[in-house]
Design a protein around this nucleic acid. Structure first.
Lengths: 230, 230
DNA sequence: CAACGTAATTTTGAATTCATAATTATGTCA
DNA sequence: TGACATAATTATGAATTCAAAATTACGTTG
């Protein structure tokens, strides 16, 4: 594993593409807070680039829905609203369902084993009550299924929407009851994948996503009523 | 119907957004041919803008998959390959299926009537053997169903992928048999929508998309074998 | 002193500039 | 003449500049 990751393509990717990759974690990491302004100047300084490539990156992020560009008023981190969540999760559900269906057609035994290992790891995180670890492995499982679907367009679409829903740490917040239910759902996901039952996996993934949707909305609404009288 | 389309937002949209909108038709219109270079200079002159906003627009179009940016070699119109088509249509199918399901939940009687009118118009275009008109109305029908789904995220995702598949006039080419089948499928679509049968509509839309996929691939493969010995 | 209007400052959007990489043209030599 | 090397040209990527818009700061007046 040397650093010659791309033997034929020595060329560094363009600055704006690099910036897109480096800005995304700031959204999920909570550094760029929904509803706040994107500090263009500060980010330029931080990454040591001029405004041109940064602004190019912001345009791309805007088309992915992570930021909103207001004419003459700059870029703002898209707020996470109930309406937004209600919109995105069903779409994500449909795409993940497809990923499950396709994965069952193409996944190798080795890949199933790898997912099973991740699944076990996630169960351990659940047992340990380690939410951060749980979420990290959870992401990896969904990602592995997506990979097994062998459809790059699907992967790209899913990841873009997924990013939007991962913004803000608090989306990870869930009740004890919801966490338990999510674990149950993942047992089903694993079972159907191992059996290569595409239809069943698709349905379970869709249900899983809708359950998550409800959980997030419930949390958002509780926040609204808490915060408003302040 | 005066020109005050946006009373509160008088502000002109930014140049790059305007350019994205004005470039897209060039892809489906066949002016920008898959596999060829995007003539940056010429487009700047044509739209009377500098390179900065145009290049911003190209970055956005690249993230939508319409162009491919090669470092230090400029922007190229993404070629329409069999692999590409095999990837995109299933995703589009999943999204359209969802749009059908959601539309059945929210569509009004008036909207159903509007779609029915479009459907009749399309049937007339079929009877007239007017392929251009047929395709135009066909688009409107899918668009109307999407609108009835009341999900902007879904609409955006669908349209982006749809654009990719509409590039190149020849995708409209289909055999007499395929055209007839497509018409039959649309009869089903109309029937299920009128009955507000979400599940059935979803399945029909998915099937419709996969049938189109096969038709396009068949055509592409026939082109490949035709063109190669040249 | 609160509300308004005006001036200074900052930020934004887009054109321009500039260094570098890629392409084309030209010349050389086998 | 054809293959290669080198020079001229062009295109690209990114920084810089500049005009216009928005924001902030300040002063005035009722």
């Amino acid at each position: 594993m040397d650093d010659a990751t791309t033997p034929p393509k020595i060329s560094r990717k363009s600055l704006h593409a690099e910036l897109v990759d480096r800005l995304q974690p700031l959204f999920i990491g909570g550094e760029l807070v929904p509803g706040t302004k994107v500090p263009e100047k500060a980010l330029c300084a931080r990454f040591g680039v001029s405004r041109t490539p940064l602004r190019e990156a912001l345009k791309v992020l805007a088309s992915d829905g992570l930021v909103r560009l207001e004419p003459n008023r700059g870029a703002w981190v898209t707020p996470v609203t109930v309406g937004e969540v209600e919109e995105v999760f069903p779409v994500l559900g449909a795409l993940e369902a497809l990923s499950g269906e396709l994965a069952c057609q193409s996944i190798t035994d080795e890949e199933i084993e790898a997912v099973a290992a991740l699944h076990e790891q996630m169960m351990q995180s659940y047992a340990d009550r380690d939410l951060d670890a749980y979420f990290a492995v959870n992401q990896q499982i969904h990602s592995a299924i997506l990979m097994a679907a062998r459809n790059n367009t699907l992967t790209t679409s899913c990841q873009a929407l997924s990013l939007r829903m991962q913004r803000a740490r608090y989306l990870a917040n869930m009740t004890e009851g919801r966490w338990f239910a999510a674990v149950q759902e993942h047992e089903m996901i694993m079972k159907h994948l191992a059996a290569r039952d595409g239809k069943a996996l698709a349905q379970t993934l869709r249900d899983h996503m809708m359950a998550k949707r409800n959980s997030v909305i419930q949390w958002l609404e509780s926040q609204e009523t808490d915060a408003e009288p302040a």
